[in-house]
Design a protein around this nucleic acid. Sequence first.
RNA 1: GCCUGGGUGGUGAAACUGGUAGACACAGGGGACUUAAAAUCCCCAGGCCGCAAGGCCGUGCAGGUUCAAAUCCUGCCCCGGGCACCA
Length: 855
Amino acid sequence: MNETYEPQSIERDARQFWEQQHSFRVSEDRGKRKFYCLSMFPYPSGKLHMGHVRNYTIGDVLTRHYRMRGYNVLQPMGWDAFGLPAENAAMANKVPPAKWTRDNIAYMKKQLQGLGFALDWSRELATCDASYYKWNQWLFTRLFRKGLAYKKTGVVNWDPVDQTVLANEQVIEGRGWRTGAPVEKREIPMYFLKITAYAEDLLKSLDDLPGWPEQVKLMQKNWIGRSEGVRIGFPYELEGKKILWVFTTRADTLMGATFMAVAAEHPIAVFASQKNAKLKSFVDECRRGPAMEAELAQIEKKGMATGLYATHPVSGKKIPVWVGNYVLMAYGEGAVMGVPAHDERDYAFATQYGLPIAPVIRHPLGDTVPAPWKPAYADYGVCINSGPYDGLDYQAAVTKIASDLKAKGLGEKQVQWRLRDWGISRQRYWGCPIPIVHCASCGDVPVPDDQLPVKLPEHLVPDGTGNPLAKMPQFYEAKCPSCARPAKRETDTMDTFVDSSWYFARFACPDQDQAMVDQRAQYWMAVDQYIGGIEHAILHLLYSRFFTRAMRDEGLLPGMAEPFTNLLTQGMVLADSYFTDEGGRREWIHPSEIEVQKDAKGKVLSARTTDGRNVVYDGIGTMSKSKNNGVDPQALIDQYGADTARFFIIFASPPTNTLEWSDEGVEGSYRFLRRLWTFASRYAKRKAALGKLAGKPGKGARFEIHSVLKQANYDLQKLQFNTVASAAMKILNALERLPEEETAAEEEGMSILIRLLAPITPHVAHHLWRALGFGEDVMRAPWPEPDPAALEQDEVELVVQVNGVKRGTLRVPKSADQGAVEAMVQSLEFVKKYVGDKIIKRVVVVPGRLINVVA
RNA sequence: GCCUGGGUGGUGAAACUGGUAGACACAGGGGACUUAAAAUCCCCAGGCCGCAAGGCCGUGCAGGUUCAAAUCCUGCCCCGGGCACCA
């Protein structure tokens, strides 16, 4: 065995071995327990970044661990290949997105292979391949026929200069990123998927996911947002009798409603603004406002009276109807009743516009609501000033009000969801075409199966002014599938989240060209362990849960509801980001090209590029293509090898922690592997000289090694891999300390150490396992388990505290009973010293750990 | 703004879910080997006071519960993620 650790050559050899043996190619094997381990597939942005390395290393540690435990493990890889960055790159480089994307895939595939992941590459897929997206289209047509996909208007960001729709990411402080023009809101026809049809199921089933982090389940629960309340009608006159409907969870405050507020898009607002120029300009202003909720929620709350009045359904009083820029058309009825006495936002609104405030609920501070607003005003309490409802508590009031309204046809109890249907239309080129043909006489006709896929032309280069498909007659000119007359093909493509909502099922049978999935999916699904960034906690995971149900209801995944049994949400890898802001356009500068001045607390004072330009520090955040702050792991891999890179990223932090990237410490990981190598080569020499190593068992070392192993196995189960890496270091430390004659313990320890490392640093483990004569393939070796006999001890050391402060320790026989221990402790000199002449009130004994003498 | 996490030495972190705070490492300091450097090996190391023995303080901040709090409770500060067209 070579005396120096040469990662490049041993890694090449190991990978060759796995390739020749087809070590990671798997098929359905009913004789073994299956384990489907999946990391979220990457967007082929160009190069791997640290987040990828972290994600796939975590997945690989699990994959290899479960293999060694005897499972039939599937770990596939593919490419989330449609998306916006390819179009941006196309514009910048005048290269078609298809070419850019496929080049990136080829490069990143090499990088992944260089990291030695135990992937079944025979299942590779890319969402931009027609053989994949055909089935997006096929499923869409099925959902369309069922009414689960339908058309309505949706809101988009519109750049008036480029005449194009912008993604939220392309809107910077309300302006288009390329033109700097103020962005407008536009309503256009779009296709929606009816995820709300599954709202109840998606919510309830969260309880059936014990393998998901509570955090994610809670976020999804709040996102779906079930609320129970009352739908209430306020009659009004406008070219005849009409009813203004609102939904409220606080129907008990109905008698305190002093105004109504409607969204700018609400029919009342639109009608009233026709005759009122001032109102029209306000409504127009609101309609132009931000489309993004985060911005909408932070703009100044404004309103204007419509001049119209609605009738209170109980008191019969006239109530003014206002337009409010904070009322969302997309949520509920697009209108709310204003109860300023018991709702903070309504209170602020009423105060600002001089609207009456009428307390109708007794709250802990009394029966009035003097300024300023206090949270207690929104508390539940009994009704006051509420006529027939006085004295009723929340439940009783809501029930009575709902039944009174029902009798008048002006309301009833209702369940409301925050979840909205999923708009999937994108006015973009690089995506999956929506398979619809618009016919003047037949309407929107889904493309029949025998005409699928609707292929995306791959040679186009977008220019930033709208979707090139819409300018290409060869694409959009079509025949109506039902009447054969000339018709127009839909030119919008699908949201890329559609592609990623079912790829996990396709990995079971990527070669199936007659169906979306086949019976092999029933063997492999559900994914036993899914791993990916916490940023996907809501959208991607919820859409995937929805798709799994939709596919089940198409008969594709019988009996399946939840796609991911266990979920590990990896923390993000963060890096600082900087931009120059010249002429309103941001140019993001890579952190490696920045010189930073920091204050004593490490806060950035100023930053400039190495060539002297001033830059704006944008804070620390997730590594992304758009902020140009990704760290390329390739340099690390080239310098130290894949095993060091893998070991380091696992060792640096527990998988769920966010990680502020720094490569300080890489040296330590490399040093460890070198030390392991040196130790192993000395061991090999001695073994060759002595024949079989058989000497003293080494009781102390065995206790240490098996204790560490026991903890490591527990940590693996908890998915806390950083301490497993530490455990490997501890075992090597123990082996190095081992006296020469304890050779049996050494041999056992070595065998444990290599197997423990195999999932993290597979190449060096593979090599050492063979070189030291333990076997052919460490991947086929059994996972090490601690020996209970090695863990047995005659004595234990207890911590002795006096009044909760540690003062010493005490060794006692394991069998000693509590009374004997108490007596021993009280006779200890240092205990007597700290107790002094005080009386011992109590002695707390925690068996096997600690004694606290309370005086 | 709303939803959701996090904050422990100079740094990454550990702490068997209430029981010795800082395991294992990085950076640092000292030493050995070497003509020298690299590599390797040994030792030191939370802060303050002290020659030392030892003492006090210490897990973002301020309180609280407990024999005992990084861990539980209340309030506050800072940072990350998501907010439906980045993926």
